[in-house]
Amino acid sequence: MTERTVDNGARSGSGRVRLFRGAGLAILALIVLGLCFLSVAIGTRSVAWADIWAGLQGQTETIGQAAVAVRIPRTIMAALVGAALGLAGAIMQGVTRNPLADPGILGVNMGASLAVAIGLAWFGMDMAQLYVWTAIFGAGVTAAFVYVIGSLGRGGATPLKLALAGAATSVAFSCFTIAVILPRNDIAGGFRSWQIGGVGGATFDGIRLVLPFLLVGFAVSLLSARKLNSLALGDDLAAGLGENVAVARGMAAFGAILLCGAATAACGPIGFVGLMVPHLCRLLVGVDHRWLLPFSALTGAGLLILADVLGRIIARPSELAVGIVTAFVGAPFFIWIVRRQRVREL
C-alpha cells in the first residue's frame, strides 16, 4: 500500500467523521426546536392548536393564547440558560481537566448567589442590570478562590482536591447566604424562590438584560475550543506547541464565568446541567472541543427545556421548579460519574 493511498484513506475517514458529527449536530438542533414547541404547547393549562398558532403570532385574546404568550419567553430563557450551563460545564471540565467540574459542584453558582444576596441585603441593590454584574463578579471570585484552594499542597490542582474545595465552598457560601438573607424578611421570600432555580418568571425584558452577557460568553467559549484541545495534552506539551497556557486557561475560564454569572442572575443557581451534558456529549463526539462545545450547548438547551416541561406535568396543577427536576436527575448521575471515573483526570 502506497503512502498516497494511506493518506487518502485517512482523509476519507476524517471526512466521514466530520459528516457524521455535522449531521448529528443538525439532528440535535431539530430536537431542540421540537422541545421548544412542546414547551410552548404543554403546561398546567391545556391549549388548543388554534390558540397555540395564534399565540405564536402574538395574539392574546383568549386565556389559551395568553398562556402561550407567557410560555414563549420562558422557553427562550430555558434554552439560553441551558446552553450556557452546558457550555460552561464543558469549559470547566476542559480547563481543570476534572471530570467532576460543574458550575454547581465547584461552587461558582453559589458564589454568584451569595454576591447577589449581599448586594440585595447590605447595599439595597435595586437596578436589574446590577444583578448580572454582581452575579458575574461573585462567580469569578469564587472560581479563582476554589482553584487557589485546590492548588495548595502536593500535586497541585488535582480533580479530587478541586471537587472537595468546590463542595466545601458551596456549602459554606450556602450557609453565608442564609445568614445574610434570614434577618431581611422583606426580601427573604422572593430570594428563596429565586435560589431554587427556575424559568417560570421569565420575560422578554429579562432576556434582553442577560442576552449581551450570554452572547459574549458563547463567543469567547467557542473561540477557545482549539486552546482547550491543546490544554488537554498537558501544560508542558501545550507550551511546547507554542500555546500560552495561562492565556488559554484564562480566556476559556472568562467565557465560562460570564455564562455562569448571567445564567444565575437570570434564573437562580441551577445545578447538575453542566455536569451531565458534557459527559453525554463525549459519548457522542469524543473529546475534540471543536465539536464538544457546540454539542454541549445544544444538549444543555434541550435538557433544561425538557426539565421545565416535566416540572409542569409532574405536579399539575402546580409546578416543580426546573432546578428541582435537574437535581433529581443529576444527583444519581453524579454518583455514577464518581464510581465510574474514580475522580481521574480527563
Rank of each mutant, 00 (worst) to 15 (best):
M1T: 11
N8K: 14
F20Y: 13
F20N: 09
G22P: 08
G24S: 04
L28W: 01
V32Y: 04
V32W: 10
L33D: 03
L38P: 05
A41S: 15
T44H: 00
T44W: 02
A48P: 00
G58T: 07
V70C: 00
R71Q: 08
A78G: 09
G82F: 04
A84E: 04
L87S: 08
L87D: 13
G89I: 02
G94R: 01
V95M: 06
I105N: 09
I105V: 15
L114V: 08
G119M: 06
A121I: 09
M125N: 09
M127P: 01
T134L: 08
F145C: 12
Y147W: 14
G150I: 08
L152K: 14
G153E: 10
G166D: 08
T177R: 08
T177P: 11
A179W: 08
A179V: 11
R184G: 03
R184V: 05
R192C: 01
S193K: 11
V199K: 05
V199M: 13
A202W: 01
G206R: 12
L211K: 03
P212M: 11
L214D: 04
V220L: 15
L222K: 02
L223I: 07
K227W: 12
S230K: 03
D236L: 09
G242I: 12
M251I: 14
G255E: 04
I257A: 11
I257R: 02
G261F: 04
G268S: 07
I270A: 03
L275C: 07
P278W: 07
L280F: 13
L283I: 06
R290E: 13
P294K: 00
I305N: 03
V309L: 14
P317Y: 07
A321C: 02
I324S: 09
T326I: 11
A327N: 08
G330F: 01
P332F: 01
F334K: 10
I337K: 12
E345V: 01
